[in-house]
Design a protein around this nucleic acid. Structure first.
Lengths: 158, 158
DNA sequence: TCTAACTCGGATACTTTCTGTCCGCGAATG
DNA sequence: CATTCGCGGACAGAAAGTATCCGAGTTAGA
């Protein structure tokens, strides 16, 4: 899985604490990561419709939907793409003992198993929303930690 | 996911139909894939202990365990490695608002969600054995298709 | 209205992983 | 004991992932 997924999720959780646009540069220095590369991930989130980009002097990124309506799966698919990890190349129809096409109407057993595992993985990620993650931060590190992030993003401190 | 996983699983299912060693070259021409590259995958299976390599003139690969005791997860982990796809880099402990280490005893919420999804994925793959896949081939394409593979592997036909 | 500063967005190099290939070592057979 | 065959790890090429830069567009303020 792409490493930028972690950055993107952290940014989305951070965006939960504010309603004003936050520039990519500021999110980068909050997490101490490469601003240029983080910008690319945020562009992917924008293309997927999870965040809305606001240009101009006071521009930045804002969540398009309430945190309860954005799941971790949404973010992962926005960054890594919606395609499943496993792709069946129909090996059964190749080689000297290739099976006839009329015998291969549905996907092969291996592809079915992989698809089922992929569905279970996606279902697990789809159960958790950004609101759940934000709540977890509050209960684990105290309410002050979360509101502090929102205040810092809105301010101009270093 | 590595594309060679598909080849490896097909080979393991094919090995279910025989008890004598099968050379990598023969498995390659059965599936019409690169012999050199398939050899690499089989070496990984050998290191993982799923197959046993027999050298010499009548050498090849054999399954070390009965097909019921080898799951799809075993093969996937042998090829792609046992490490989970997501790795937490502890972003929460970086940047100007870094959380203190004493507040970060357990894994963060994001890592937990990812680990849970990964566990669900592995659990789904662990439920299916090579025997199940072989049975599926028999019921889908008829018993003759499967025994035909075993006969072809044992023979020297092209 | 005009200027100016700040933002995103896509096009551009570099690194790591994955894919594919090769030849040498060891073992079993006759 | 020589020969033949197959495995094993070491060697290039391709693809994806990682990191970066500068230009287009927009908004805020003078």
């Amino acid at each position: 899985m792409s490493g930028g997924v972690e950055w993107a999720i952290h940014c989305c959780v951070a965006l939960t604490s504010v309603r004003a646009p936050v520039p990519a540069t500021r999110l980068a220095q909050l997490h101490d990561v490469s601003p240029s590369y983080l910008a690319k991930q945020l562009q992917a989130l924008s293309r997927a419709g999870l965040v809305r980009s606001v240009q101009g002097k006071a521009g930045g990124y804002v969540l398009t939907r309430p945190p309860e309506d954005i799941t971790v799966l949404d973010v992962v698919e926005a960054i890594d793409g919606p395609d499943p990890a496993f792709v069946c190349t129909e090996i059964r129809q190749r080689g000297p003992l290739a099976l006839p096409p009329e015998s291969c109407t549905g996907p092969c057993g291996i592809a079915r198993v992989m698809a089922e595992a992929d569905a279970a993985w996606r279902a697990s990620l789809g159960k958790v929303s950004l609101a759940d993650l934000a709540r977890d931060v509050r209960t684990t590190h105290g309410p002050g930690a979360f509101t502090g992030i929102g205040a810092w993003l809105a301010s101009s401190d270093t």
